[in-house]
Protein backbone atom coordinates (compact mmCIF):
# COMPACT_ATOMS: atom_id res chain seq x y z
CA UNK A 1 0.00 0.00 0.00
CA UNK A 2 1.31 3.42 -0.95
CA UNK A 3 0.39 6.73 0.64
CA UNK A 4 0.32 10.00 -1.30
CA UNK A 5 3.77 10.94 -0.03
CA UNK A 6 5.19 7.80 -1.72
CA UNK A 7 3.97 8.96 -5.14
CA UNK A 8 6.64 9.84 -7.65
CA UNK A 9 7.18 9.90 -11.38
CA UNK A 10 7.25 6.35 -12.75
CA UNK A 11 5.36 4.73 -9.86
CA UNK A 12 2.72 2.21 -10.95
CA UNK A 13 -0.51 2.01 -9.05
CA UNK A 14 -3.79 0.18 -9.41
CA UNK A 15 -7.07 2.05 -9.85
CA UNK A 16 -10.28 0.08 -10.57
CA UNK A 17 -8.16 -3.03 -11.26
CA UNK A 18 -6.21 -1.38 -14.06
CA UNK A 19 -2.54 -0.44 -13.96
CA UNK A 20 -1.63 3.25 -14.09
CA UNK A 21 1.75 4.93 -14.24
CA UNK A 22 2.49 8.38 -12.86
CA UNK A 23 3.95 10.42 -15.69
CA UNK A 24 4.22 13.77 -13.90
CA UNK A 25 4.25 14.58 -10.26
CA UNK A 26 4.42 17.76 -8.24
CA UNK A 27 4.17 18.42 -4.52
CA UNK A 28 2.31 21.68 -3.88
CA UNK A 29 1.02 23.42 -0.79
CA UNK A 30 -0.98 26.62 -1.11
CA UNK A 31 -0.20 29.13 1.68
CA UNK A 32 -1.12 27.63 5.07
CA UNK A 33 -3.12 24.98 3.23
CA UNK A 34 -2.71 21.24 3.07
CA UNK A 35 -0.14 19.31 1.07
CA UNK A 36 -1.47 18.33 -2.35
CA UNK A 37 0.06 15.90 -4.79
CA UNK A 38 -0.68 16.96 -8.36
CA UNK A 39 -0.21 14.04 -10.67
CA UNK A 40 -0.62 13.09 -14.28
CA UNK A 41 -1.45 9.44 -14.77
CA UNK A 42 -1.51 7.20 -17.80
CA UNK A 43 -3.57 4.07 -18.06
CA UNK A 44 -0.95 1.48 -19.02
CA UNK A 45 -3.35 -0.52 -21.15
CA UNK A 46 -5.40 2.13 -22.98
CA UNK A 47 -2.80 4.90 -22.88
CA UNK A 48 -5.48 7.37 -21.72
CA UNK A 49 -4.00 10.24 -19.74
CA UNK A 50 -5.57 12.37 -17.07
CA UNK A 51 -4.70 14.70 -14.23
CA UNK A 52 -5.56 14.08 -10.64
CA UNK A 53 -4.77 15.88 -7.38
CA UNK A 54 -4.36 13.68 -4.34
CA UNK A 55 -4.33 14.50 -0.62
CA UNK A 56 -1.95 13.09 1.96
CA UNK A 57 -4.69 10.84 3.38
CA UNK A 58 -5.17 9.04 0.03
CA UNK A 59 -3.78 5.53 -0.32
CA UNK A 60 -3.02 3.36 -3.34
CA UNK A 61 -2.53 -0.31 -4.21
CA UNK A 62 0.57 -1.18 -6.21
CA UNK A 63 -0.22 -2.31 -9.77
CA UNK A 64 -0.11 -6.07 -10.28
CA UNK A 65 2.61 -6.31 -12.92
CA UNK A 66 5.38 -8.74 -13.79
CA UNK A 67 8.80 -7.79 -15.09
CA UNK A 68 11.02 -9.93 -17.30
CA UNK A 69 14.63 -9.35 -18.35
CA UNK A 70 14.91 -9.06 -22.15
CA UNK A 71 17.29 -7.69 -24.72
CA UNK A 72 16.66 -4.77 -27.07
CA UNK A 73 17.04 -5.98 -30.67
CA UNK A 74 15.92 -3.40 -33.22
CA UNK A 75 13.32 -0.88 -34.28
CA UNK A 76 11.11 -1.46 -37.32
CA UNK A 77 8.18 0.66 -38.51
CA UNK A 78 7.56 2.43 -35.21
CA UNK A 79 7.76 -0.87 -33.33
CA UNK A 80 10.53 -1.80 -30.91
CA UNK A 81 11.52 -5.45 -30.72
CA UNK A 82 12.82 -7.21 -27.59
CA UNK A 83 13.88 -10.82 -27.07
CA UNK A 84 13.93 -13.17 -24.10
CA UNK A 85 17.47 -14.63 -24.08
CA UNK A 86 16.38 -18.01 -22.74
CA UNK A 87 13.15 -18.75 -24.57
CA UNK A 88 13.99 -16.58 -27.66
CA UNK A 89 10.45 -15.27 -27.39
CA UNK A 90 10.09 -11.87 -29.04
CA UNK A 91 7.76 -9.03 -28.06
CA UNK A 92 6.99 -5.68 -29.63
CA UNK A 93 6.24 -2.33 -28.05
CA UNK A 94 4.89 0.81 -29.69
CA UNK A 95 6.62 4.18 -29.68
CA UNK A 96 4.13 5.36 -27.07
CA UNK A 97 4.65 2.35 -24.81
CA UNK A 98 8.39 2.78 -24.97
CA UNK A 99 8.26 6.49 -24.11
CA UNK A 100 11.45 8.18 -23.01
CA UNK A 101 13.25 4.85 -22.63
CA UNK A 102 14.02 4.94 -26.37
CA UNK A 103 16.61 7.63 -25.63
CA UNK A 104 18.80 4.91 -24.14
CA UNK A 105 18.35 1.97 -26.53
CA UNK A 106 21.65 0.64 -27.83
CA UNK A 107 22.05 -2.78 -29.45
CA UNK A 108 21.66 -5.72 -27.07
CA UNK A 109 20.84 -3.48 -24.09
CA UNK A 110 19.39 -5.55 -21.28
CA UNK A 111 16.06 -4.09 -20.20
CA UNK A 112 13.08 -5.01 -18.04
CA UNK A 113 9.89 -5.60 -20.01
CA UNK A 114 6.72 -5.08 -18.08
CA UNK A 115 3.78 -7.46 -18.45
CA UNK A 116 0.20 -7.21 -17.32
CA UNK A 117 -1.47 -10.61 -17.75
CA UNK A 118 0.90 -11.73 -20.55
CA UNK A 119 0.59 -8.41 -22.34
CA UNK A 120 3.78 -6.40 -22.77
CA UNK A 121 3.09 -2.85 -21.61
CA UNK A 122 6.32 -1.01 -21.14
CA UNK A 123 10.05 -1.09 -20.74
CA UNK A 124 12.52 0.06 -18.10
CA UNK A 125 16.15 0.55 -19.11
CA UNK A 126 18.94 -0.06 -16.59
CA UNK A 127 19.43 2.90 -14.20
CA UNK A 128 22.72 3.79 -15.86
CA UNK A 129 23.59 3.57 -19.54
CA UNK A 130 26.87 4.60 -21.19
CA UNK A 131 26.40 6.43 -24.47
CA UNK A 132 28.71 8.01 -27.04
CA UNK A 133 28.55 11.72 -27.78
CA UNK A 134 28.14 12.08 -31.55
CA UNK A 135 27.71 15.84 -31.76
CA UNK A 136 29.07 18.58 -29.52
CA UNK A 137 30.29 22.13 -29.80
CA UNK A 138 33.98 22.43 -28.92
CA UNK A 139 34.88 23.46 -25.37
CA UNK A 140 35.44 27.21 -25.03
CA UNK A 141 38.13 27.60 -22.37
CA UNK A 142 36.98 29.14 -19.14
CA UNK A 143 33.44 27.79 -19.34
CA UNK A 144 34.02 25.29 -16.54
CA UNK A 145 34.51 28.13 -14.09
CA UNK A 146 31.19 29.79 -14.81
CA UNK A 147 29.50 26.41 -14.39
CA UNK A 148 27.54 26.55 -17.63
CA UNK A 149 26.29 23.48 -19.42
CA UNK A 150 26.00 22.80 -23.15
CA UNK A 151 23.73 20.57 -25.22
CA UNK A 152 25.19 17.53 -26.98
CA UNK A 153 23.64 14.77 -29.08
CA UNK A 154 24.19 11.13 -28.11
CA UNK A 155 24.36 8.07 -30.39
CA UNK A 156 20.65 7.36 -29.83
CA UNK A 157 19.71 10.86 -30.98
CA UNK A 158 19.04 11.94 -27.40
CA UNK A 159 19.94 15.56 -26.64
CA UNK A 160 21.28 16.19 -23.18
CA UNK A 161 22.88 18.99 -21.14
CA UNK A 162 26.44 18.20 -20.10
CA UNK A 163 29.38 20.09 -18.57
CA UNK A 164 31.26 22.08 -21.23
CA UNK A 165 34.41 19.93 -21.13
CA UNK A 166 32.64 16.94 -22.73
CA UNK A 167 33.75 16.54 -26.37
CA UNK A 168 32.61 14.66 -29.45
CA UNK A 169 33.48 10.96 -29.44
CA UNK A 170 33.58 10.69 -25.65
CA UNK A 171 31.42 8.29 -23.71
CA UNK A 172 29.22 9.54 -20.87
CA UNK A 173 27.09 7.81 -18.25
CA UNK A 174 23.44 8.86 -18.13
CA UNK A 175 20.99 8.28 -15.30
CA UNK A 176 17.98 6.96 -17.21
CA UNK A 177 15.56 7.77 -14.37
CA UNK A 178 16.21 11.50 -14.50
CA UNK A 179 17.58 11.55 -18.05
CA UNK A 180 20.53 13.55 -16.71
CA UNK A 181 24.27 13.41 -17.28
CA UNK A 182 26.16 11.69 -14.46
CA UNK A 183 29.83 11.41 -15.32
CA UNK A 184 32.37 10.92 -18.09
CA UNK A 185 33.35 7.31 -18.81
CA UNK A 186 37.03 6.62 -19.58
CA UNK A 187 38.02 4.35 -22.46
Amino acid sequence: MYSASDLKKGLRIKIDNEPYIITEFNFVKPGKGQALYRSKLRNMITGAQFERTFRSVDTFEPADLQEKKMQYLYKEEEKYCFMDNESYEQVFLTEEQVGEAKNFFIDNLEVEILFFEERPLGVTPPNFVDLIVVKAEPWAKGDSVSGKTKPVTLQTGYQIQVPPFIEEGEKIRVDTRSGEYLTRVKG
Binding site: S144, S146, G147, K148, T149, P163, F165
Partner: peptide
Protein backbone atom coordinates in the same frame (compact mmCIF):
# COMPACT_ATOMS: atom_id res chain seq x y z
CA UNK B 1 37.52 18.90 -9.80
CA UNK B 2 35.52 18.76 -13.00
CA UNK B 3 33.02 16.28 -11.58
CA UNK B 4 31.99 18.98 -9.10
CA UNK B 5 30.14 20.76 -11.88
CA UNK B 6 26.85 20.33 -10.04
CA UNK B 7 28.18 22.63 -7.35
CA UNK B 8 29.62 25.16 -9.78
CA UNK B 9 26.45 25.15 -11.90
CA UNK B 10 24.49 27.28 -9.40
CA UNK B 11 27.28 29.75 -8.81
CA UNK B 12 25.56 32.76 -10.39
CA UNK B 13 22.40 32.01 -8.42
Amino acid sequence: MRDNWRLTKNQAA
